[in-house]
């Protein structure tokens, strides 16, 4: 579990009281993490961009309900992102005006290397998502948060709004099923990757 004493809490307190700069600071601090989490759940950078914006808009809309996990806003943002992924269309309707304004802006093209890197990442991510698609949705969520995002059980429990025991059992079940499904493919699969989890800063 990572810890930032009072930093997010101070900013959130100020943002909730109407300070745009403080909310902007929280956006600067966490949008990259949210953006990449949304990408990892969708394998689409463009969709991840929309979702990231919606996560912060939803956080602001429901600000009276926000509860920080310790001194970090991040578990809450992961929870909003997970819900937004479920209710994508509803969120799109709610924030369509803001989304339309930003989408209407001209976008400078990426350079060739960046474009290739992003396409390659989308391709890789689709492979990863295909490999877990047979898991129940709840198991996929726990897997994404604990293994890909490096959250501890407690943080994942806060993000998903479930007891810590549920997180543990879902992760154990997901691992068991994946092991069964993946073993035969390991000998000739195109991607042999690390068995580590990466902790978020």
């Amino acid at each position: 579990m990572t810890y930032q004493p009072l930093a997010d809490a101070d900013l959130w307190s100020r943002a909730r009281d109407g300070d745009e700069r403080a909310f902007g600071e929280l956006f600067d601090r966490h949008s990259r993490t949210v953006y990449n989490y949304c990408f990892r759940r969708t394998a689409d950078w463009s969709v991840a961009e929309d979702l990231t914006a919606m996560v912060f808009m939803e956080t602001w809309r429901r600000r009276s309900h926000v509860r920080l996990s310790g001194d970090s806003l991040l578990p809450w943002l992961y929870g909003v992102a997970t819900n937004t992924l479920h209710n994508h269309r509803r969120s799109l309707r709610r924030h369509r005006a803001a989304l339309a304004r930003v989408r209407a802006r001209p976008t400078p093209p990426n350079d060739a290397a960046t474009a290739a890197s992003r396409l390659e990442a989308e391709h890789e991510m689709r492979e990863v998502l295909d490999s877990i698609r047979k898991l129940p949705r709840g198991d996929q969520e726990v897997l994404a948060l604990c293994v890909w995002e490096g959250l501890g059980y407690a943080e994942a429990a806060v993000a998903l709004g479930v007891p810590i025991g549920t997180v543990r059992s879902r992760l154990a079940r997901a691992r068991k099923r994946l092991k069964q499904h993946l073993e035969p493919a390991r000998t000739d699969g195109p991607r042999r990757t690390a068995l580590y989890t990466e902790e978020t800063p």
Binding site: W45, V128, L143, R175, R186, R191
Partner: peptide, 13 residues
Amino acid sequence: MIDLQPPARQDMP
């Protein structure tokens, strides 16, 4: 254990 990892994180443009 789980051995499929997502690609590296990237910045939003």
